[in-house]
Design a protein around this nucleic acid. Sequence first.
DNA 1: CGTAGGTTTGACTGATCTCAAGTTTGGTGG
DNA 2: CCACCAAACTTGAGATCAGTCAAACCTACG
Lengths: 243, 243
Amino acid sequence: MHFNDNDAVGPLIVKLEKLAPLSDAAKAKLKALPFTHMAAAADERLVREGDVATNCCLLLSGYACRHKSAHDGGRQIVSFHHPGDVLDLQHLLLSRADHTVQVLTPATYLRVPAAALKQAAQDHADIAEALWRDTLIDASVFREWVLNVGRRDAKSRIAHMLCEFEVRRKAALGGSAKGVVFPLTQEHIADATGLTPVHVNRTLQVLRESGALGRAGTKVVIGDWAQLQQIAKFSPMYLHAAA
Amino acid sequence: MHFNDNDAVGPLIVKLEKLAPLSDAAKAKLKALPFTHMAAAADERLVREGDVATNCCLLLSGYACRHKSAHDGGRQIVSFHHPGDVLDLQHLLLSRADHTVQVLTPATYLRVPAAALKQAAQDHADIAEALWRDTLIDASVFREWVLNVGRRDAKSRIAHMLCEFEVRRKAALGGSAKGVVFPLTQEHIADATGLTPVHVNRTLQVLRESGALGRAGTKVVIGDWAQLQQIAKFSPMYLHAAA
DNA sequence: CGTAGGTTTGACTGATCTCAAGTTTGGTGG
DNA sequence: CCACCAAACTTGAGATCAGTCAAACCTACG
């Protein structure tokens, strides 16, 4: 199922041009990349911790996360991903996956052989720069998560995680924050913040009482965006304008 | 104080060759890099969070760390560094520092203009690959830290952090684990693990009682390396053989 | 409607934090 | 070599945040 219509890799080019200017030759190279359109059901795993990964995935629709497991079975989500994100660029140079990639919702994505993308980066310094910058921003976000999980209390920790999610969602999809529904269960939030689902539940109640958050059925929604950022002491510098 | 003796960048070449094979042309390019020999007193900051950073630092001797501050003043160390490490490769492509770089001990390092190193990477795909791989391993280590801080209890958390430190120290400097003295205060350990110094103190006592750790004056030393790894459930896969 | 997954609640436990003294250590200057 | 000092480490008691376990309760969806 190899297409070569130019539109399919469009989201990749859009993404990379935000990171570094691309020459026409580089864009042509990207358009010539082999790829496969894929669909994933909710909760499907794209890569498993310990696998040898030979593909990179460009998320087209839906949401995904990356997570690791502690020895006792505890799960830690280390990042969330939005449409347009490349999920596993580290597999260009590190073949053994140190974490699992899993979609949260039904999703579609483009699967590109890592070797082909790596070759594109070797041939075009501007492609390499864009991809490299993307991975550096990734690393900056991980650093912030270490701080978030290590040094903030439950309330600001959850608020901070949701702020980041919203800023990145908006960068990918546009729209305004008010009323945004997060595609997350309380268990996802717990796994991302290093808290238990029970404590997340209680903390969300507090955040709802203050109006910072609201609810849409069973899902969390933003109530007051300014207040949520205030509670989180959120400052998006660490995203390096990936936003 | 610009040298051009070939030996000075030797540690950089040694480091990068562990990450990717380098052509002779690439090595020549690295040897021609402009640099300055620097010395830092204990606790000196090389880069401050928020700075525009225009240099990269290759640590020659001594130890360093990177850390971020929470709004309430809480400090979170996000990585430790050993001789041979490049401290801030992210500044090749992200000019604004999202964290502080600080030495732990008196140290010497080579300061290289980021622009020159970036140019070297653009001219030589093998240099780019080695540097990129280094930053990807960095990111993998951050993911492990998120897990460590988010999902392990104080005892295994501290043990895990010390295991990583020792594996990386050994990769940089060689020698055996038994009796290794960590150049860390209990406050450093607390800042790296998201615990308070008081609780670190109490937990270290437990680890000493079991024999996993010992002491040399006021500093922590490894008592029983196998037991320490067992307590941490330490598995070095995430270091991607940076070890 | 029935069901499974997700959420909520209560009561209790426990790990870690806080604050506020001490005590030891390692370096420094006399 | 000793006395002193600052930094680092220890200790205790009490407070709290977050975890555990177990049972209900929703709510989306087939």
